[in-house]
Amino acid sequence: MAPLAAPGHVLTWRAFGRLPRLALTVARELWFAVVVLALWWVLSSGSTSFYFPPLSEIWARFQELWLFDRVPTDVWPSLRNFGLAIVLSCAVGIPLGVVLGSLRRVREIVSPVLGFGWALPKLALLPAFIAVAGIGDGMRVSFILAGAVWPILLGAQDGVRAVDPGLRDMARSYRFGRGTLLFRVLLPAAAPQIFAGIRTSLAIGLVLMIVGEMLVASSGLGFFVLQSQQSYALVDMWAGALLIGMLGYLITLLFTVLERFVLRWHFARRAMHAAG
């Protein structure tokens, strides 16, 4: 019997070659954003409003500030704290989630606490974090961590719980060791849900990063935006907000590329099932 054919559109795109395909993907992704920016540029060009300066002014300021004058003082500390907190969230959330997903008894005991931790607005904890951890980078990292760890933990837990009993029987009957079971069966099976969790954590972490900086910092992007507003530098404020938006978008985009690569088996299989 012949193997099933690959989904049609993949073959069609290949015929066009790699480069036009990439250009087309980018165009499809960005055309509407370009339209919105163009409208903003045109409509704001004659603006004399103090609160809504022309985009051309914001863009000029954007270049002065972020290419690359203030990158070491404001952008880098923010991104470093954010990145560190996400890495720590994975390092804590994935192992804990795998353990909880495997041990029903422990999960039943712990799950009300997990639900509470997940539901609690993390901002409510900010005063406690300041009291305990001060206002340095350590506090800012742990504050992001406190919000970002939950989706990863729950994703890993649910992913491991959902592992097919047939796969577990197979693993047992072939006498897989703990390492093989964990790294070749459980983690790959749970990976799609772990990645979905990380995606949510990135969004939550970005918000907590900005808020933390606005409320208790003397550097970073959130601090910059709030301080600009308070010193009536509204062009600076808009330039900062624009950068935060772009960073958020870029982080999500990079993550999507990573996800597509690590889970290529998952996406290819899904495309095939959808096509078949």
Binding site: D164, G166, L167, D169, M170, R172, S173, Y174, R175, R184, V185, P188, A189, A191, W265, H266, R269
Partner: peptide
């Protein structure tokens, strides 16, 4: 426990093969 001398083939092949390998 599942002995070394025994190999199992189950009905549902799609649930006994690992799709990521």
């Amino acid at each position: 426990e599942p002995p070394r001398q025994l190999a199992l083939v189950l009905q549902d092949y799609s649930r006994s093969l690992l799709p990521w390998m």
